[in-house]
Design a protein around this nucleic acid. Structure first.
Lengths: 240, 240
DNA sequence: TATAGATGTCGCAACACTGTCGCAGGGCCA
DNA sequence: TGGCCCTGCGACAGTGTTGCGACATCTATA
């Protein structure tokens, strides 16, 4: 699981947050001030930083600045800022230095975890996008009797042309690029809709439903991963 | 490597972005306001523009408008717009003015780079395809009962000569060169009109409409790809 | 300058797409 | 086993897209 660097000087709050994140399945490193945060960051591999605005020795803003100036990929680590005051000024400054998201105290642990999860997910979407981008775009994807041609924007099933709507096409394309991999609804939402999902992810369900219907007997190619989302049935020898 | 024009008035953010883009291998030019952006753009060769929505002197929207009105190919430069979370600028508004993508602050640097790369890549693909499509082709194209002779600038349907207007001819020629490939309206616009489409792509519709009409019963050779554009029905054994 | 053909724009109607809802069925955990 | 949550699925309404005729504009030509 992902490692999160928590930078918070208020000990009690730090403990609560750490516990919460850990029970959400993350590995948490904690720092009580800015300097040790920077120190830790340069030594340990972290995927995300939760950073309090007010810190002893080196405040959050300054930490953020320095992080962004660090060499290597660590400089672009996603940062979730915690700020006590909701004053507009603070936000603007924070954002301009390059925080990825912010949360104003007081906040619920539920919300914190949600934001963290969202940030990490977005990061994953980005990584995938970059990878997909490196591959030739117009590649025809083959998957048993299914064939998807991005250039012609067309899908054929067993040679017969399938008439898919844009959304259906995008989603199938996504699934087809990583057969066997399970995608969460939220992930699919962000990747195919380019939007942050705010609840109501039944839209994804519906597209899947329609896709399955159009696939007819091949509808079972799309498997449901209970409690998670969907995936394309891993392709194994001639099981058609 | 590609040159990117960064237009952002918040200095710190601009620096962070510039550093990030540069370490991603791009050459970055920076402007702090709209006027200097336009100035720079007309003097230097840039492949992409990252444009903040809120700018002193001339806001992003206006800059974009003027850019799109500039003479020459520079008008079609890909633009990635930056907006703050508060300023409700939807995809809709952005796309209406002709932004190719947009990002809402706060965003991660990784995401920015990902988008930039995606835009440049898309542009590159389009350029290549356009070049290929523009290559002189003297070959007579056959497509079932349709025959197009570029030299004679003539089309015959079932042996009978078809009277096409120049635009209609160009468009049909384009479609005919890649049967089955789906063309977006924007692409057709660029290819046949040598113009950047800024909305109003109903012109394409109309040419298609007229083409279909002239093709008579064969009008259904040109298929509509919903939400995308048009394509010539792939030619394959009597699947009518 | 008048005319005809070519081409872009507009508006309306038809249609496709998509998100939401409610209900039913089934898996998961205590 | 019972309750709860998740998923499947049909229906429906709002929205966006396309087809198409009508009209305005532009251009070349006599």
């Amino acid at each position: 699981m992902a490692t999160i660097l928590l930078v918070e000087d208020a000990l009690e709050l730090a403990e609560v947050i750490a516990r919460e994140l850990e029970s959400a399945g993350y590995h948490v490193l904690a720092a009580g001030d800015g300097l040790s945060a920077l120190d830790l960051l340069s030594k340990e591999a972290c995927e995300l930083m939760v950073l309090d605005w007010m810190l002893p020795r080196l405040d959050g803003l300054e930490v953020l600045r320095q992080v962004r100036r660090m060499p290597g990929p660590i400089a672009s680590i996603p940062v979730l800022m915690l700020t006590a005051r909701g004053e507009e000024m603070d936000r603007v400054v924070g954002l301009e230095v390059g925080a990825d998201d912010y949360l104003t105290k007081p906040f619920s642990m539920r919300e914190l975890v949600a934001r963290v999860r969202a940030l990490l997910r977005r990061e994953e979407v980005i990584r995938q996008t970059l990878r997909a981008d490196a591959a030739p775009q117009g590649t025809v994807l083959d998957y048993g009797v299914l064939e998807l041609n991005p250039e012609a924007h067309q899908v054929t099933l067993d040679g017969a042309s399938l008439d898919l709507s844009p959304t259906e096409f995008t989603l199938l394309h996504l699934l087809l690029r990583s057969p066997g991999r399970a995608f969460s609804r939220a992930y699919l939402m962000e990747a195919a809709w380019q939007e942050v999902s705010i609840g109501g992810d039944r839209s994804v369900d519906n597209v899947i439903l329609r896709l399955r219907k159009k696939l007819g007997t091949m509808g079972n190619l799309i498997e449901t991963v209970w409690g998670i989302g969907y995936r394309l049935r891993p392709e194994h020898g001639g099981a058609e």
